[in-house]
Write a protein that binds this DNA or RNA. Structure first.
Lengths: 128, 128
DNA sequence: TGAATACTTAGTGCAATGGCTAACTAAATG
DNA sequence: CATTTAGTTAGCCATTGCACTAAGTATTCA
């Protein structure tokens, strides 16, 4: 039953997880948390944005299960939820399994599209 | 020089790739293309949305390098760009490398500390 | 050549995203 | 007890995302 409901929402979870990973600020937070737990203030320090803006990223990460947080006094500590990225891993594996199951088919060349990079990162400057 | 510019835009590329993967329609397209190349019409057929809407997904996938397309006559054929997902793989590996590098007692200390406060603090919301 | 096919372009609408400020609460600290 | 510190809440705003319809283009077919 539990497993069923997990399977049922597998895709929804991937939506949220990939969405969460699609932002450089949030990836940077995950990266930092990979080195160990940290408070909101510590995590926010490298970023130029206002704290409430930063908090939204934290909430989104927590909401999608990529981190856990706990408040101790007036300090909220964030911890990486390592197991969560397994969903990404699983998706990648599944995807690869699909195309690797196909025995060699004729793959044709297409001239690579030399699209120029568009919008640079908006507010990714590291302050201080 | 080429490598440098690639490195420089690594983060931008991840933004786009993760964003592209954050949509179930687009993941379904990639999944289908994993079974082999297909035309726009073939790919669109399972979806309830209007064709121009579907096309936007295709364009986004192509723009982010996850697929390539080529037009023959009036038919546009889409092909999976398998190598593109390596960026996701790389990011995952890098992320894991970070946290696996610290399996020392510092991590244990933090965990123990969190466990210790479990009873006092009920403010931690895990709500989904 | 006229009609059907397979996209393609253009423009609309609404919700979600990601930034901001101002003002607030609660927990240290002097 | 007043002040600083660390988040938090509320609300605003510009941009982006993703759906739609209507109409256009370019092949292919009868």
């Amino acid at each position: 039953m539990l497993i069923l409901s997990l399977m049922e929402h597998y895709s929804d979870q991937l939506n949220g997880i990939f969405q969460a990973l699609a932002d450089p600020t949030r990836r940077a937070v995950l990266r930092q948390l990979g080195r160990g737990s940290a408070s909101i203030g510590e995590l926010a320090q490298p970023f130029a944005m206002a704290l409430p803006s930063f908090m939204k990223h934290i909430h989104l990460l927590e909401h999608n299960g990529l981190i856990r947080t706990r408040k101790h006094g007036r300090v909220r500590t964030c911890t990486l939820e390592k197991a969560r990225l397994a969903a990404v891993d699983d998706w990648l594996s599944e995807q690869r399994a699909l195309w690797e199951a196909r025995t060699d088919r004729l793959e044709q060349f297409v001239i690579a599209d030399l699209e120029k990079d568009k919008d640079k990162d908006r507010n990714m400057e590291i302050s201080k």
